[in-house]
Design a protein around this nucleic acid. Structure first.
Length: 408
DNA sequence: TCTGGGGTCCTAGGACCC
DNA sequence: TCTGGGGTCCTAGGACCC
């Protein structure tokens, strides 16, 4: 059965939301970024004209566009906007999958079987989003999710492209493999494909499966399907039923360091951020993973599986410290430390019966409550105060998809 | 001029057990 | 002393995504 899938892809989403909320930013080149040694998360189209791109550092952005306005991102605003987009999408079909904070798949096959032109649906969605939220989007239409996604990237901003099944062979024959970025063909794979003489999507689809399997293993099968413009994956409208698999944070130091006390205090701060979110989500984890990025951008990582699930800051920190100890003595200065916890399960309420745990939990949750009410780190561990002495400020976590899972 | 932060999935190798 | 094969679990690392 032929399907009709739409992908709504928001244009310069974070920057557009900031401009919609603050008239003083409209029509101006702006970038949304973090703090410290940060990069551009999103550049407005006015900034892109000057060559400002995602991933540039602030210096590069200012060089390219001296008048660019840097705005510190506020994730909660983007999550709100994302929910609003989802609500609008549901006015058109109940088959809606929030794919990321700024992308949304719709399966409108049923509607289109009644002679409704999918382009009319797309135009109505674009109009509603612009009217209600003051931001624009590009919509791609295709017979499946992969093709819809490719179509959505073909015209930006404010685009609308439909790729019909019969158009795929001609279109893909001309499409460079780099254009498949975003559907599972990243930089490494496309470079390898090019070195094999496969330069277009069409050539990828025509390459014998055995050859692709030989070079890419089981991935070869998926690559061939992408090259053929085929994809059976359904639009998953189950929403927040997906489980969160891991919760983590990382932080880049203002300056590279070998000082164990600095590294340790950052790790304590990360522990508190991870622990806070774990408790917020009502989860506990059984595997702790620590990572270090060195000044030369090489990295080290190690994990520790546990006998029991944990959720308290001091438990997480105890394990993190043991893992971190394996990285010493350090051969190079450290740029970033990261901490994440996985192997998650919902909080076991029975454990509350244990008095010791109860006390600890009550304390941690009281701290969480106060921090939620009066701002993160109103109450903080001594290590965090120490962190601040070194010029560290806790940043807002870029939670994206997880926040959507929780809040929807 | 160096290059953020949040995730997911997959693979490969070693340990261990039967 | 040398020899299996299969399965599972754990760990490290890579690729990809927004």
């Amino acid at each position: 059965m032929t399907r009709t899938i739409l992908l709504i892809d928001m244009n310069a989403f974070f920057a557009s939301v900031e401009q919609a909320m603050n008239p003083a930013l409209r029509g101006k080149p702006i970038i949304v970024c973090g703090r410290g040694r940060t990069v551009v998360t999103t550049a407005s189209y006015e900034a892109r004209v000057f060559g400002v791109k995602t991933g540039m550092n602030l210096y590069q952005a200012k060089q390219a566009c001296p008048q660019v306005i840097a705005v510190e991102g506020d994730m909660s605003r983007y999550i709100d906007a994302s929910h609003n987009i989802q609500r609008i999408a549901r006015e058109f079909t109940d088959q809606v999958e929030m794919f990321s904070i700024d992308e949304c798949f719709l399966d409108v096959s049923k509607t289109c079987r009644n002679e409704v032109d999918p382009q009319n649906i797309a135009r109505a969605i674009k109009h509603t989003i612009r009217e209600k939220l003051g931001v624009t989007c590009s919509i791609g239409i295709g017979p499946n999710k992969v093709v819809a996604k490719i179509a959505s990237k073909m015209q930006k901003p404010d685009g609308l492209i439909e790729i019909r099944e019969k158009d795929i062979p001609v279109l893909f024959a001309l499409m460079a493999v780099q254009k498949l970025q975003g559907v599972g063909v990243g930089r490494h794979i496309s470079e390898k494909l090019m070195s094999m003489g496969i330069t277009t999507a069409g050539q990828l689809g025509n390459t014998p499966l055995e050859k692709l399997m030989h070079h890419f293993g089981i991935m070869g099968y998926r690559l061939k399907r992408i090259g053929e413009g085929k994809d059976d994956s359904p639009v998953d409208s189950s929403g927040g039923n997906e489980l969160i698999k891991s919760v983590g944070h990382s932080h880049t130091f203002p300056r590279d360091t070998r000082d164990i006390s600095i590294i340790r205090s950052y790790m304590m701060m990360l522990t508190e951020k991870v622990g806070l979110r774990l408790r917020e989500y009502g989860l506990m984890g059984k595997t702790v993973y620590c990572t270090i990025r060195f000044g030369d951008f090489t990295s080290w990582g190690a994990q520790q599986g546990l006998k029991e699930h944990i959720r308290q800051n001091r438990e997480i920190f105890f394990v993190a410290e043991q893992i971190l100890a394996r990285a010493f003595p350090l051969s190079k200065a450290v740029r970033l430390v990261g901490l994440s916890i996985s192997d998650l399960k919902p909080r076991d309420t029975q454990q509350f019966l244990l008095k010791e745990m109860e006390k600890d939990t009550t304390l941690a949750e009281a701290v969480d409550d106060i921090n939620k009410k009066y701002g993160v780190f109103t109450i903080k561990a001594s290590s965090v105060i120490l962190s601040e002495k070194f010029g560290i400020r806790p940043s807002c976590g870029m939670v994206s998809k997880q926040a959507l899972k929780i809040k929807v």
